[in-house]
Simulated scan of single mutants.
Amino acid sequence: MTESTGRTGTEGQGGTAVAEEPAGGPMVRVEDLHRSYGSGAGAVHALRGVSFEVPRGELVALKGRSGSGKTTLLNLLGGLDSPDGGRITVDGTDLAGLGENGLLELRRDRIGFIFQSFGLIPILTAAENVGVPMRLRKADPREREERVALLLSLVGLADHAAQRPGELSGGQQQRVAIARALANRPALLIADEPTGQLDAETGLAVMELLRAVVRSEGVTALVATHDPQLLGLADRVLELSDGHIVEHA
Rank of each mutant, 00 (worst) to 15 (best):
Y37S: 11
G99C: 09
R185Y: 00
G42F: 08
R56T: 08
P186Q: 00
V30P: 01
T2I: 15
R147F: 08
G196Y: 09
G64T: 04
D109L: 14
E53R: 12
S216W: 11
E217P: 13
T195S: 06
P194H: 04
L106M: 15
L188E: 00
R211V: 09
L106K: 07
G14D: 12
G171H: 06
L154K: 11
E239I: 09
L210I: 13
L151I: 08
R185L: 00
R29D: 10
L120K: 14
E145G: 07
E21M: 12
R29N: 07
L154Q: 15
S36G: 04
S66V: 11
G12C: 10
R29M: 13
G12D: 05
P26E: 00
E143M: 03
M134Q: 05
Q116K: 02
L152N: 05
G203P: 06
L198R: 01
G79H: 11
P186F: 02
L168F: 04
G97S: 07
H45W: 12
D159P: 06
I245Y: 08
P186K: 04
L204G: 14
A17L: 15
G25R: 05
Q172E: 06
L124I: 04
E11C: 13
V30C: 05
G99H: 10
E167W: 06
A126C: 07
P141M: 04
S4R: 15
A177D: 00
G156E: 05
D94F: 07
D227L: 03
G64Y: 07
R236V: 10
G6S: 10
L103G: 01
G14P: 12
E105F: 12
D109Y: 05
L120H: 02
T8Y: 12
G131R: 08
A158K: 12
V44A: 05
A224N: 05
E201D: 15
R215V: 15
T89S: 07
L136C: 11
L77I: 01
G38A: 10
L150F: 09
T125V: 06
L59P: 05
S169R: 12
Q229T: 11
P83Q: 08
P133M: 00
G69E: 12
V176N: 02
D91N: 11
K70M: 13
P194I: 06
E31F: 06
L73I: 09
L103Q: 03
V130F: 01
G196M: 09
G86T: 08
V213N: 11
G78L: 06
S36Q: 14
A46C: 10
L73K: 11
V223K: 07
G6A: 14
P133V: 04
S117R: 15
F113K: 04
I178K: 12
V28S: 07
E100R: 14
T220C: 01
E208V: 12
R236M: 12
R56S: 12
A179G: 03
V213F: 08
G119W: 02
L136W: 02
L124Q: 00
H226I: 00
E105M: 08
R135W: 03
A127D: 10
G57L: 13
L136I: 00
Q163H: 13
A234G: 03
D199A: 00
V214Y: 13
M134E: 02
T72A: 07
P228A: 07
V176Y: 04
G97A: 05
G14F: 13
L168M: 00
D199F: 04
T10I: 15
